[in-house]
């Protein structure tokens, strides 16, 4: 470039039609060669969105309907909500971790066989709520969302919905909870 060319370079204008074909071909071929590795890479990047992959990554260890054994009914005393971990076989990409906590629930016994079960995850931004006896409710430590004993959010709370209650059943004296996580930050309760 710095050395002066001995002759003027032929400009594309000299051969308009041939030049156009060449340009088009050059762009097409260059495009193909460049895009193939990018597409293959992008495909693997999008892997987490495949339903098959999502299904494989779900924890196992629940019964057929998705209920996990949490505790014995006898261990619950009336009134105060108690937090319990949910134990399941966790999958993490290539690894399988047997019997690990995958989340927590608050269980409150309201009558002999009546329970209130909440996922501890705050529906606002996903922190874990704590039970506060003095407030008679659940307080989120992150943005101060406050939920009553029945899970209803206070009017001034940043949370858009109530605490996520979970289905439960009692079998042979054990409490089983249909544990699931819900999408965070929206008003509706949508399973994740």
């Amino acid at each position: 470039m710095s050395e002066p060319a001995s002759k003027p370079a032929t400009t594309p204008k000299d051969f308009p039609r041939r030049s156009f074909l060449r340009r088009a071909l050059a762009v097409a071929i260059g495009g193909v060669t460049g895009i193939v590795p990018a597409i293959v890479g992008l495909a693997s990047f999008l892997n987490p969105l495949r339903p098959k992959v999502q299904a494989k990554q779900r924890p196992t260890g629940s019964d057929a309907e998705g209920f996990y054994k949490v505790t014995a009914l006898d261990s619950l005393t009336s009134g105060t909500p108690i937090s319990f971990p949910i134990i399941a076989n966790r999958k993490d990409a290539w690894n399988t971790f047997p019997a690990e906590p995958i989340g927590s629930v608050y269980i409150q016994k309201t009558a002999d066989d009546k329970l209130r079960v909440f996922n501890v995850t705050c529906p606002h931004a996903g922190c874990s709520v704590d039970f506060h006896a003095d407030k008679q409710g659940f307080l989120c430590p992150c943005h101060n969302s406050l939920f009553a004993m029945d899970g209803v959010h206070s009017a001034s709370s940043p949370s858009a919905r109530d605490l996520d209650s979970l289905e439960y059943k009692i079998e042979n004296g054990d409490v089983l909870v249909k544990f699931m996580n819900f999408r965070i930050g929206i008003k509706e309760k949508h399973a994740q």
């Binding site: 001995s6 002759k7 032929t10 060449r22 340009r23 071909l25 060669t33």
Partner: peptide, 25 residues
């Protein structure tokens, strides 16, 4: 060879390079 017509990198040499890259790929 130098006595031949000069050309510019785009599009003549680019096309040849592109074809070569395609062959590599």
């Amino acid at each position: 060879w130098r006595s031949q017509h000069d050309t510019t990198f785009w599009p003549d040499q680019v096309l040849k390079d592109g074809v070569a890259c395609l062959a590599v790929l």
